[in-house]
Design a protein around this nucleic acid. Structure first.
Lengths: 199, 199
DNA sequence: TCTTTGATAGCACAGTTGTGCTACTTTGCG
DNA sequence: CGCAAAGTAGCACAACTGTGCTATCAAAGA
């Protein structure tokens, strides 16, 4: 068999199979056999790259946060006016298209499993801390641009923005028809607008 | 064996065992055998009350929303000043103590499973619609009490409040140490205060 | 008292699970 | 060419799964 050029690449391919299986059959359906079948390979090959099933799921989880992080960095690198950029950054964490929806479903499934899987919980906590930090940075940027009124409790507002963000993500995930992407964006805009002086 | 006085009561007892198992070992661990063992009964007895495992999980799910609803009705019946009552009602949906935390964990686990279980998804959607309706009622009550400024988009604010609520619930669930109950309440209060005129 | 019914117990079955393990094939390097 | 290593394949095993099914037990109604 052809030697894989990049080991990391191969692992990503297999993790992609994990994603597809999880989206189709849930985490419960993500057995070693079903993932191998989805990836078009064998149990042995799968075990060569991931010594255990948990390792496989953990890697799939890290890929979620890695994807989000990469997209956000892309937006930041892209530049543009602060207000628009802030909105674009936050939107990258929401399941507003098929790609991000897939991430969201995997994220929800693994977040639930993390309730009883310590290692998975550690990954989830790290991702959560990063996302919260992102919210803090967004508020800082808005404050620098003069788009935030004085007298706000920064810590509390960070927590509130983070809650809105994850709440929207969850709702966009489980009721995509009654809460379409445009509506999600509108709620986010209203929230950010509410941070500056009203009337 | 003594005949069970109330069939519904017996079903609730068994569902309680489901909760405990889910909290300890996750949904994946909630097998017919483990639930029966936790309930101190047999597989046969369990199957007498729930013909299938799915039926068992679905009943456990309905109990979550039922509990929340009952507590909310209790608060409403209790009376009191509108502002305090509104806060109390919303708090009943958040995992701020052990009882509600248990509900939250079960809710998260089953919500994730609902991604691939249609019947469970229907239950989740019904609960979600109720919760969203609750947010709408809360906004109405605040408006009647003159605690909401004019010119707000009611639909959008309902969606935003609902997002804050579920976001806080999720965060209180997965990071209880960094986001204690007092802090959750503070965020909620800030959000409600932000609905009336600032300065 | 006997019968019917509610309730419990748990075996049997076919299937799936994760992982240990060995055998095999393909590739790169000397 | 030949050898070592990377990668693939899949069998074997013990453990566990949900559900069908029968047998048993307790109590209520006749």
């Amino acid at each position: 068999m052809p030697r894989v050029v990049d080991a990391e690449q191969r692992r990503r391919e297999l993790a992609g199979a994990v994603w597809r299986v999880i989206r189709r059959d849930g985490v419960a359906g993500a057995s070693v056999r079903s993932v191998a079948r989805e990836a078009g390979t064998s149990m042995g090959a799968l075990r060569h790259w991931f010594p255990t099933q948990d390792a496989l799921l953990h890697f799939a989880m890290t890929l979620v946060s890695e994807n989000v992080r990469a997209r956000i960095e892309g937006v930041v690198r892209g530049g543009g006016p602060p207000a628009a950029q802030v909105l674009a950054v936050l939107e990258e964490t929401l399941p507003l298209d098929e790609e991000r929806r897939a991430e969201g479903e995997v994220w929800l499934a693994l977040t639930a499993r993390a309730l009883v899987d310590d290692e998975l919980a550690a990954l989830r906590d790290r991702a959560a801390a990063e996302l919260r930090q992102l919210c803090a940075l967004v508020l800082d940027a808005l404050a620098d641009a003069g788009a935030v009124r004085d007298g706000l409790d920064t810590e509390l507002e960070t927590e509130r923005l983070y809650a809105v963000l994850d709440g929207l993500a969850l709702h966009a995930l489980i009721r995509p028809t009654t809460l379409p992407a445009a509506r999600v964006r509108a709620v986010l805009e209203v929230h950010l607008a509410g941070l500056r002086d009203t009337r």
